[in-house]
Computed example of a mutant assay.
Amino acid sequence: MIPAAVLRVCGRPPSIEERRPPVPHAGEVPIRVAAAPITPLDLLCASGTSYFGSPATPYVPGVQGVGRRADDGKPVWFATSAGMRPGDGSMAGAVCVPYVDVVPLPPEAPLTLIAALGLSAVAAHAALTRTGGLTGGEVVLVLGAGGVVGQAAVQLARLAGASRVIAVSRSSSARERALRLGAEHAVPLLPDDDAGTLADRLRAVSGLVDLVLDPVFGVPAAAALRVLRPGGRLVNLGSSAGATAPLDSATLRSGSLKILGYTNNGLSVGERAESLGVVADHATAGRLTVSHDVVPFTDVTAAWNRQAGGDAGGRTVLAF
């Protein structure tokens, strides 16, 4: 028998149960799970209110995880469709995953850190480089720099050759962390900001920027457009600051600006594996990190409630 976090009622946290080990089918890789993060997508799916519809219960949550192949012990990262389609996810002692959703990791990979980075760092890397077309020497503005995507983006932009990175965040602690992670300036987002006032503060430290990484939308996105150089790009991958933004036609047209949308769902399996490989290599070499809390798997119910309530210090990772 293996331990598993089982969610029986949508909107409530999972709890530990004992289950039979999964049996691999053709094309699946048996994996001993080492760690699994509790991500916003896990919480959304388990709420029963996601755009995927209410999941069939009971099920084991967890859309991603890290572990070791059962046959040779080699470390891997893996993805699942738990909560989006019928089937169990990563929050169990062992899983069987289709080989196309398994990515080899470096032998010395820091597994809990890679679990914390995971698809959030993949999104930051792919949005910057694949969608945003970041090239060496460009100036990058990262909105929402306090979140996992934003933290990763600050570092990955520099690692990809950005000459300068400017960070924006509401929290003073997040701004201080962004500076430690490589941002040249960290600009506060204030409660009464409108697009004009925030743009003025940004312009004072950034000048014109080439690329905006935007996981927040709303007023910050509208302000960021005003400091883009002609032909500059804004890549949006979230809406935590607002589902709509007060954009004005004159700003877009006068600068021939580009607004691009990004989602991990748009990546091919190969593209996802490529970005995950870049993330894993940087993390293993000590060049990439993110704030996270590692908690014992047996504490999954309390950890889930903290993450859902916004009381966690960063990404929560369940360790076996």
Rank of each mutant, 00 (worst) to 15 (best):
A152F: 01
E176Y: 07
A36F: 01
G73W: 13
V205M: 11
S47Q: 05
Y99P: 00
F78Y: 02
T197S: 15
S206V: 07
G11C: 06
G261E: 07
V209N: 10
Q155F: 05
V235G: 02
P220H: 03
S206R: 06
R164Q: 10
F52V: 03
A116N: 13
E138M: 12
V269Y: 15
L7N: 12
E28M: 08
V95D: 09
S240Y: 02
E271W: 01
L105G: 13
V212M: 12
R306G: 03
R203H: 13
S54R: 15
G87T: 03
V60D: 04
T80D: 05
I38W: 02
L288G: 12
G65I: 03
E274N: 11
A94L: 09
V219K: 07
V219Q: 04
G231K: 09
L267T: 11
A157R: 08
A36H: 00
A26H: 11
A35K: 13
L141G: 07
P98D: 06
L181A: 13
A124L: 07
I259E: 11
H292N: 08
E274L: 12
P215W: 01
A186F: 13
A308H: 03
L288P: 02
V103P: 04
A178D: 11
L190E: 15
G27C: 10
P296L: 05
I31Y: 07
K258A: 14
S120I: 00
L113V: 02
A162H: 07
A273M: 01
L159F: 06
P55W: 11
A145F: 02
P246N: 08
L237I: 01
G196I: 05
E176W: 07
V76R: 14
F52E: 00
L198T: 04
P296E: 08
S206T: 06
V165R: 01
G238M: 12
